[in-house]
Design a protein around this nucleic acid. Sequence first.
RNA 1: GUGCCCGUAGCUCAGCUGGUAGAGCAUCCGACUUUUAAUCGGACGGUCGAAGGUUCGAAUCCUUCCGGGCACACCA
Length: 536
Amino acid sequence: MANTPTLFDADFFDAAQDARAWPFEEAKKVLKRVEKSGKKEAIFETGYGPSGLPHIGTFGEVVRTSMVRHAFRLLTKDEIPTKIICFSDDMDGLRKVPTNVPNQERMAEYLGKPLTKVPDPFSDEYPSFAHHNNARLRRFLDDFGFEYEFASATDYYTSGRLDAALLRMLEVYDDVMKVILPTLGEERQKTYSPFLPICPRTGIVLQVPMISRDVEHGTVTYVDPETNEEVTVPVTGGAVKCQWKADWALRWYALGVDYEMSGKDLIDSVKLSSRIVRAMGGTPPESLSYELFLDDKGQKISKSKGNGLSIEDWLTYASDESLALFMYQKPKTAKKLHFDVIPKAVDEYYTFCTKAETQSPAEVLENPTVHIHAGMPPKHDMPLSFALLLNLVSAANASDASVLWGFITRYAPVATPETHPELDRMVGYAIRYFNDFVKPTKQFRAPTDQERAAMEKLAARLDEVDDQSDAEAIQTLVFEIGKEFEFEPLRNWFKALYQVLLGQDQGPRFGSFIALYGVAETKQLIADALEGKFAA
RNA sequence: GUGCCCGUAGCUCAGCUGGUAGAGCAUCCGACUUUUAAUCGGACGGUCGAAGGUUCGAAUCCUUCCGGGCACACCA
């Protein structure tokens, strides 16, 4: 999202103290936590599963976390340093071969191994599958201009940055087990361990019980399931990684995470991980459980089901700012995420942008756009709403930007693509929307004999006019032909034109349409229709 | 069972720390247009899920209940 003027000055700092927008509410919780701990920095974290592909929930999480961070900076007069850590769980074992990658057989040989040890199935460009996914994730985040610090679990484990925390986890091992075991089924209880050793023999991430541990030496001992030999490994230096909930706790503890939000499906995990952190002597971060997104039928959106909207879908038909606005609104309410919500989000975004110009500092901080831009929103002059554009593009049957601009300029004479680049951007979106949603619903019908004759006449008489002719003259011509062929009422003649030529029941004023669409093009359109190229 | 969210106009939803119920769409009427659509103006439309409580005053705060949705094995 584009850089805009920041709000870091006294007026906004003052207003922030009483601001009630949800990012401020969250930021206040973080501030309280930071003050209590006496820390000199506030750490925000977002985590990413090993499958790696960014989806709309990922986007929402980073956008929203960035908003809380920005609110925090305003709240604290930007005197406390902040950062967002994007943590990739790239040391997790490969559990199954993804169905959407090439080289399936080769991948299968690496089942169970850390993702950073699995070769990239796509190319030799990256040293591993995880590196490939991480690169994609970072490109994704960079494209949106997010500020973040990337963190790789593998790097953290192997570099020793987690060693102190791992040793602490080992010390409180029994307490951790007490937290987790009651939540597990009988079978899983037998094999559970917060530590997952990386088998020195095979490199596989093992899910095996620990038979003993040595706090003093910082090691754990387990039985190799294949050789039945006892193996002792250090918990440090990347020789083990932690199992999910323990892993989360470990990170919070080691990095001093102050804030992390997550979907409401993870509420129980947050609770358990929090108890583990406390067992370690730490304090769990402030958290926000956001609601999941639903599709138009109220079903949960999931990657595997492929329902609902993807980021790509949204960005095909509207700007990333409008998507960010959608994410801003009510994170704790389950919202339906489908095509119909797009136009509203787009128009509200511009409305809020305009409003911000005349608002007081206190009001500005309640304006979603300042949270989207982390500063004052850009100024836009929007003579037409997106909703109106969509109507226009549909009514005018415009699948071409220049044709659509013709209609727009008639409506708002001052507007051109040069003077209104933002509107031009929307024109592009509207046309895509038209092509993908309006066009497929068109129903062309064959003309009656009377209509056919009239249209042939119209095509012939269009030779009399040229592209220079004005819309009125052409309109008169169309009108005359309707009279000549005795359409009664005359409205049926126009209706026939729309239904046969445009595949819709209603349409633009026909003279204007021809003038903008082009005389030659219209003749071709008529010829095609009469040949039956449109009617199914 | 535990927890979260929701219940406001026909539909989709706004209503922020309590002060006379709002928008968009839909519907209907009108204006403009030598047709239509678009556009513009207007009208219609709600005992704010229910009952208690706090208050001079509650859609808003508290309690209980009803109805709907979702999450909660393992893995992340």
